[in-house]
Design a binder for these strands. Structure first.
Lengths: 343, 343
DNA sequence: CCCCGGAGTTGGAACGATCCAGAGCGCCCC
DNA sequence: GGGGCGCTCTGGATCGTTCCAACTCCGGGG
């Protein structure tokens, strides 16, 4: 049974040691400008000497806040390579530290219910706010939370409800793909194909629009260069084969909606005895996953600035928690292109 | 400013609604067997009707526990592929749910100080326990926490202090490598090389011992088949070239200490115009990273049972928190081999 | 000389739960 | 008939903090 070396210091302990009242110690921590400099000094020394840190539970109870931000972790799809969550979580935890917040992870009992888990944390006042990341296939969470006036920030735009007013941060996928197209055109490519997701994916269509528009802006045709399917390697493989099999002009480069799909394209290229790279068939992926960095010639990929996303998420979260009401709080960040061997 | 639709229910509210005392409501939740069935029923209905969930802060204050488990997230090394943290975190959060716990993430202000961050969470009673994952290069955290009698469970053995008595869970890397060797021998390979980490890595040497011992058990020589270096693709590449360049008998298969190194070996094989796979040069990695699943012919790899690790971590955590003292609480789990194209 | 106001400090109350000691009640046994 | 015991249920105290109202100084103005 754990025996405490010394009884944990409390406000009362510190107050007695410094010869002041509890409230003065509290003020020394929360509103130091209220104290006379010499008193402040004396209290701070007592705090230091006793190694006092305010008890969170008591503070939370009194202030009705937990300084915790909930984030629901959903199972990652095996066979998919993005691995963004790792990077994002670390950045988020880091940004939260600067704001005096911490990240609390939770999972759903019923994975298929996108709302599962939020309500309980809320009613028990376990968290002050949420970060919602899974905004891919619409996000009922955002509507649900907004309706209840629960503070939250979404990573991902409210595609399906463009007039939603909740705070969100997103990465400009369209601009990212434009970077990729420019890069390839500058390298001399003209027949640049798109290997994307189904039409039903708003994110997929946004990224695709970057390809369509920039191709036209550069005076290039997109005809017979577009493929759409699911987010698997196998689909990427088949799509690349199909595009390369068609008679007439075949693509010399592939811009892919994800690294997963790009891996499939690379497979197809290898299977045909061609070489991925600027001299033969160029390939660009999306997400800059660890796999992109290690696959054979190095996969050029659009990298999402997740570190900056986390910073912005926390900034909007702080605004919301401080009840600073801003009209349409959001941030759109521009990704960058990591050029590697495949282009 | 958020206006609550209805004032949040508290014990007192529910008690009044059910016509009982606060304590009886509390008992209905925490010790239902103390109540007469009809009272229990009545209280539960009131709880249900009012949508009551106990306030965590108040409960935490009174019980001096937070039901939170701290986990420090350190930056992941770019250019390395393991990506285990994602899987582990999800599994851990999931297992914690079953135990009424939640995971609280934190980061260090000073990344180079392995102890940074723990003390503050502890003194503020923000967490009840820790899960320590970064046990690679020795773990001062374990010693520090154990000394203070702080509940924690380590993922990773106390290699450097074999008589440490704190709870830990680990994966039997040695056994995993043995699986790999057996698999390759069964496929007809005899000259099976080891591409590992530096001698200073205890984990690396543990895994290597699986190769050495199983090779000998199967009557095979390990002479001139062992390489050691850092955990990079480039090292794997150079090691494979060196092993294949040596005159005399060259290896026909590579067992690698990590997927990262294995990716380098695959690169070297491609550069020599050889083919990775059972018919030419077989390769086995370690960690079953997403990259292993998507790289060209599919990298055979040793998969750590992280889901089960998380379950065991939480089990030991619960034991520790319930102050069930067990002699040497630990669990060693056996990995499995995911066979893919490279073997 | 007294009143006023602001700066600095104080002690009681409150947050919402659980711990703990004990009260009420019915039953059995002597 | 009274004492004892077990089963239910109760109310006050408590956890450690912050909110709030008020109190003590002290100097300046009437």
């Amino acid at each position: 049974m754990p025996a405490r070396h010394r009884p944990v210091a409390t406000l009362a302990t510190v107050a007695a040691a410094a010869g002041v009242s509890r409230q003065t110690v509290s003020n020394a921590l929360n509103s130091p400008e209220l104290l006379r400099p010499d008193t402040l000094e004396r209290v701070q020394q007592a705090i230091e000497r006793l190694g006092y840190t305010p008890n969170r539970a008591a503070r939370n109870l009194r202030t009705r806040s937990s300084q915790l931000v909930g984030l629901r972790l959903d199972p990652t799809t095996e066979g998919t390579v993005s691995g963004l969550m790792d990077r994002f979580l670390h950045s988020l935890a880091e940004s939260c530290r600067g704001a005096g917040l911490h990240v609390l992870l939770f999972t759903a009992e019923d994975v298929n219910d996108p709302l599962d888990g939020y309500d309980e944390l809320l009613r028990s006042a376990s968290v002050d706010a949420f970060v919602v990341t899974d905004t891919y296939r619409g996000n009922p969470q955002a509507a649900w939370l907004a309706e209840r006036q629960v503070p939250f920030v979404a990573f991902g735009r409210p595609w399906t409800e463009p007039d939603a007013t909740h705070p969100w941060v997103d990465v400009d996928g369209r601009a990212g793909v434009m970077l990729a197209v420019d890069h390839l055109v500058d390298r001399g490519h003209q027949r640049i194909a798109w290997v994307g997701w189904q039409k039903s994916s708003t994110i997929g269509e946004d990224r695709r629009s970057g390809w369509v528009d920039r191709m036209h802006e550069r005076g290039l045709s997109t005809s017979r260069l577009s493929a759409r399917g699911e987010d698997t390697i196998e689909y990427g493989r088949r799509a690349a084969h199909a595009l390369l099999d068609q008679d007439g002009e075949q693509p010399t480069a592939f811009v892919c909606v994800s690294d997963t799909v790009a891996m499939g394209v690379l497979q197809a290229i290898a299977e045909r005895g061609r070489r991925p790279g600027p001299d033969d068939l160029a390939v660009v992926g999306f997400d800059d996953s660890p796999a992109a960095q290690v696959v054979l010639p190095g996969l050029t990929s659009v990298r999402q600035p997740l570190e900056e996303v986390a910073v912005q998420v926390v900034r909007l979260l702080e605004d919301r928690l401080a009840m600073r009401n801003i009209e349409h709080p959001h941030a759109i960040l521009t990704p960058e292109l990591r050029v590697r061997g495949t282009s």
